[in-house]
Design a protein around this nucleic acid. Structure first.
Length: 858
RNA sequence: GGGGACGUGGCGGAACGGCAGACGCGGCGGACUCAAACUCCGCUCUGGGCAACCAGGUGUGGGUUCGACUCCCACCGUCCCCA
């Protein structure tokens, strides 16, 4: 079905193309269209949940197009431009292909930078943030994105964090919140706790100070309860990059093994569990290791001669960066506790050491050391002269062959009593069955994923909505008392505890249960909590009846296209998936996955490095908009290369895109006549080769651009295709090849097609030119469909190869039978020369493409 | 150490097993101009040739195939994730 828009039949309502200004003036054009779209409510999205209005859900295909929300630092950077331009192109395309489009914007507004500014200047973080949001909003608006600004949200708005707190309470009710003493990553500079994910190479992700470990009571979300679901549901994410799924899989780190219980010698009531992936080697466990933070350590050495040495070692470990501790080639340090545990398989007493390469974070913080079959345990045994017992031998190795290094390869069991001769897999099964029968362990699955530590001793976050009552313990703040608003404080700097603790009149409150005196929780939540559900809040931005309305959320969710930086491949995307699953299990939302399709974009580099203030290589988007216009910037940022790849900024590259827009402007301005002739049909251009060729080019371009935007996410090739069309039309017109009536039809059609296809990339100039050509409301103009009559080639260029080598080409009528194509190929002089009189033994024919004549059999 | 991605002109890149280098940048030459800017036209992978053309060419080496930038294996290099 070919769309024939009524555009062609309408008289021009505005001055014709010839009266366009000679020069394209982006500033005027962009200001004009941004106001026009606002006035028309062009990008207003429905439905969203509103107070007092029943949900009404349209019966139309929807497209929820979402880009990761920005942190409002006050300045947008090129990464934002790329991210939001990509989303905008998709949104425009979906809108014009019959979808109800939802394309909202918001701000991830809590967090450290505003708070640090507040600490420096004393200005309230809320004020700093409000100013930054205003600034970033105006910069985003200057880029002309098709965003519904009525649905704008800020996670630091009490109307938003009220519901973050409400969701926290639902997690609490469901047993997914835990408060416990834990060895936590402590940043001595920021004076706060960090999530594991915020520790990179042993350094604070933000301030790069070395991270220390401390024992503190903290709040956790039990994401580990969903470890398996997060793995299983990856099957639903077939439109996610494989790379991201792999990273998440590694992060969750499922491993099959066993939990084994060791009893403390001379204190058999005390049981220390370990997790091991090699239960088959249990007979080879010749010593036992505890992490320095393990709670059992002080008890084991209490009153013993080893006490002081052990506790000194523990103290040193606490000041050592985690990455250093676990590094494979670092000398294996440790200290003997003087105590022993019983190996449940052999009954042997084996010595217990404290070693800093054992991390409290992994497994249970205790390790059964099997030096014969684990590299690090082997190194430890060598360093401290501990026994090594081989329990696995390759088939050609004698059971007592000495080991120069740990043997981690395959083999059968030796020196393992009843297990001798078994394969590794058989032994695993046998050991697990035996342990389970004796109640000393079981086969189990371990995950690398840790529970999510969400408490922060910082001011600028959502307060954790609980009170601590001497009588009742931890008591949730009732829903009708939400939000728990951030109190006013004088000093925003953390001093080992949350700055909120200084607001005494806020902290001192009443217990909601018993009415007695109670104290508010002063920790705030990790900002990743805020951004784990914002895509739901967009569907109900001002709703006060709940975080969102299920019916409306179910209409929009899951997000059809999510776009953002690959740096969020693990944390944000995993947390958002976790939240969605919990909300689903609470019956609050229908989908189990928030994002159906994900696209991760590459970064913009400049002068060979990532743009950053400290390097001084930042190109501010505003400066480019001022010089060249927003349309040029949008076009260039997508033209730079494949959207998924990193790309190098080039000033002259920007100029090239501006030249292209100038060329489009001149093309439209030079169109003959005042109004569009009818859309050319095949019969109109049949006798005019130039006209026909141009119309064909236009139709082929529609086809290519539609695929590139709609299916391939290949924006740079879409833009190239439009440039080819413009070059073709410009050349023809300047050569006077389109002066016939058919030629004029073709010229108008090419110009109209160009502008229509250009619109998602450069919406302002496209709208301006569209109007000059007599059209209006390009944002809702149906997306062009190629006329199939022009896509069928009227002649085909056939490539002729001899032995796979290109020898010549031939223009032939389409649809010729194979033998005729071969005959034509054989008749070509160059082909005959290449054949040298030989008769082909094989003739490969690919219809419409090529003929390959194979002369000599190999 | 394990896993993954990538390697094509001077540069960004195109080619979804079938014409390598589209499109853009940069460069060279020309037209317009008193001159410049803008714009327009031509050339721009390498070697040979005045040319039409011929030969070679997608990190290296092998393989699969009538045919490989594309698929497979190994190596070299770059980047990312996990240790």
């Amino acid at each position: 079905m070919v769309a024939f828009p009524n555009w062609y039949c309408r008289p021009p309502m505005t001055p014709p193309p010839s009266e366009l200004p000679e020069r394209y003036d982006p500033a005027a054009t962009e200001a004009r269209w941004q106001s026009a779209w606002d006035a028309a409510g062009a990008f207003h999205a429905e439905p969203v949940a509103r107070d007092g209005e029943p949900a009404r859900v349209p019966d139309a295909p929807k497209a929820y197009v979402l880009e990761m929300l920005p942190y409002p630092s006050g300045e947008i950077h090129m990464g934002h431009v790329k991210n939001y331009t990509m989303g905008d192109v998709v949104a425009h395309h979906r809108r014009r292909t019959g979808h109800v489009v939802f394309h909202p914007m918001g701000y991830d507004a809590f967090g450290l930078p505003a708070e640090n500014a507040a600490i420096r200047t004393g200005e309230a973080p809320a004020e700093v943030t409000a100013r930054n949001i205003a600034s970033i909003r105006s910069q985003l608006r200057r880029l002309g994105f098709s965003i519904d600004w009525d649905t704008e949200i800020s996670t630091a708005d009490p109307g938003y964090y009220r519901w973050t707190q409400w969701i926290f309470l639902r997690f609490l009710e469901r047993g997914l919140v835990e408060r416990r003493e834990a060895a936590v990553n402590w940043c001595p500079r920021d004076q706060t706790v960090l999530a594991n994910e915020q520790v990179v190479d042993g350094l604070c992700e933000r301030c790069k100070s070395p991270v220390e470990l401390r024992q503190l009571p903290q709040w956790f979300l039990r994401i580990t309860d969903y470890a398996q679901a997060l793995l299983d549901d990856m099957d639903l994410l077939d439109d996610w990059p494989e790379r991201v799924l792999t990273m998440q899989r590694n992060w969750i780190g499922r491993s099959v093994g066993a939990r084994v219980e060791f009893r403390v010698a001379d204190d058999e009531a005390t049981v220390v569990p370990v997790f091991t992936t090699r239960p088959d080697t249990l007979h080879g466990a010749t010593f036992f290791l505890l992490a320095p933070e393990h709670p059992l350590v002080p008890r084991l050495v209490a009153g013993a001669p080893e006490h002081d040495a052990v506790m000194e070692y523990v103290g040193t470990a606490a000041r050592t960066a985690v990455a250093d501790r676990s590094s494979a080639d670092r000398p294996k340090t440790g200290v003997f506790t003087g105590r022993h545990v019983i190996n449940p398989a052999t009954g042997d007493r084996i010595p217990v050491w404290v070693a800093d390469y054992v991390l409290m974070d992994y497994g249970t913080g205790a390790v059964m050391a099997v030096p014969a079959h684990d590299e690090r345990d082997f190194a430890f045994a060598r360093a401290h002269d501990l026994p090594v017992r081989r329990v696995i031998a390759a088939d050609d190795t004698p059971p007592d062959a000495p080991l120069d290094e740990a043997w981690t390869g395959p083999g059968h069991l030796v020196n393992s009593g009843p297990l001798d001769g078994m394969s590794v897999d058989e032994a695993k099964e046998a050991i697990c069955a035996d342990l389970a029968a004796r109640g000393e362990g079981e086969a189990t699955v371990g995950y690398r994923l840790r529970d999510w530590l969400i408490s922060r001793q910082r001011y600028w976050g959502a307060p954790i909505p609980v009170v601590n009552c001497a009588g009742c313990g931890v008591v949730p703040v009732p829903d009708d008392q939400l939000p728990v608003l951030l109190p006013h404080v004088e000093d925003y700097a953390p001093q080992g505890q949350s700055p909120l603790a200084a607001a005494e009149e806020w902290v001192a409150t009443q217990c909601p249960t018993c009415g007695g005196p109670a104290r508010r929780e002063t920790d705030t939540m990790d900002t990743f909590v805020d951004s784990s559900w914002y895509f739901l809040r967009y569907t109900a931005p001002h709703f006060t009846g709940g975080p969102f309305d299920r019916e409306i959320a179910d209409y929009w969710l899951p997000v059809d296209q999510y776009i953002g930086g690959v740096e969020h491949a693990i944390l944000h995307l995993l947390y958002a998936r976790f939240f969605t699953k919990v909300l689903h299990d609470l019956g609050l939302v229908g989908t189990r996955e928030p994002f159906a399709r994900l696209f991760t974009q590459g970064m913009i580099h400049h002068q060979g490095a990532k743009m950053s203030k400290s390097r001084g290589n930042v190109v501010p988007p505003d400066a480019i908009i001022q010089r060249f216009g927003a349309d040029t910037l949008r076009l260039y940022i997508l033209f730079m290369g494949p959207a998924a790849d990193d790309a190098e900024w080039s000033d002259s590259g920007v100029e090239g895109q501006r030249r292209f827009l100038d060329r489009v402007w001149r093309l439209v301005r030079a169109l003959p006549g005042d109004r569009a002739p009818a859309r050319p049909a095949p019969s109109d251009v049949r006798d005019d080769p130039a006209a026909e060729a141009l119309v064909r080019k236009a139709e082929a371009t529609v086809d290519k651009v539609s695929q590139d935007i709609g299916e391939r996410f290949s924006f740079h090739t879409a833009i190239s295709a439009i440039q080819e069309l413009v070059n073709h039309a410009t050349r023809d017109m300047s050569e006077g090849a389109l002066s016939s009536p058919a030629g004029e039809m073709a010229a108008w059609h090419a110009a109209r097609t160009t502008v229509s296809l250009l619109f998602p990339f450069a919406p302002h100039i496209a709208s301006e030119l569209w109007e000059a050509m007599g059209g209006e409301r390009l944002w809702q103009e149906p997306w062009p469909e190629p006329d199939p009559a022009f896509l069928v080639a009227q002649s085909e260029t056939i490539v002729v190869q001899v032995n796979g080598k290109l020898r010549d080409r031939a223009d032939v009528a389409p649809g010729l039978p194979d033998d005729e194509l071969v005959a034509i190929a054989m008749s070509l002089p160059k082909v005959q020369a290449a054949l040298g009189g030989a008769e082909p033994v094989r003739r490969i024919v690919v219809p419409g493409k090529l003929v390959n004549l194979v002369v000599s059999a190999k």
